[in-house]
């Protein structure tokens, strides 16, 4: 398995995926349910994240998500991804603030797993 990204000072790891049904970006939250908002994402230390990721990968098919991996984020409220790529995934395209998940109406929640 590929090595985990290592968070720096004041940073944590989150787990993310794309929802199978609609490709919506989701974050692993409480009770190991996939959530739409990054604010609901569980914060992992480097030490905890490996096992959690393995479990999430093993359960991906059953929980109807694809492309599961970890993301380094600042340990803020809500957590904020460190890279531009992950910030764009979390908040939507920078060229269309109106499309961002923070502002756009959340789509019907079919896979409220």
């Amino acid at each position: 398995m590929k090595r985990l990204s290592r968070p720096g000072e004041g940073e944590i790891l989150l787990l993310t995926a794309s929802r199978l049904l609609d490709g919506r970006i989701v974050w692993l939250g409480e009770g190991e349910h996939w959530r739409e908002s990054i604010a609901e994402a569980t914060r992992f230390t480097y030490e905890d994240a490996g096992a959690a990721l393995e479990r999430a990968l093993a359960e991906a098919e059953q929980k109807e998500v694809v492309a599961v991996y970890e993301v380094v984020a600042k340990d803020t409220q809500p957590p904020e991804p460190v890279t531009t790529r992950e910030a764009i995934r979390a908040h939507g395209p920078s060229v269309h603030p109106d499309f961002s998940y923070d502002h756009a109406p959340v789509r019907e929640k079919e896979s409220a797993l």
């Binding site: 794309s18 490709g23 919506r24 995934r89 499309f99």
Partner: peptide, 10 residues
């Protein structure tokens, strides 16, 4: 069938 998985959706 022309369907890709991208950053926000298919």
């Amino acid at each position: 069938n022309g369907v890709y998985l991208q950053l926000h959706a298919y």
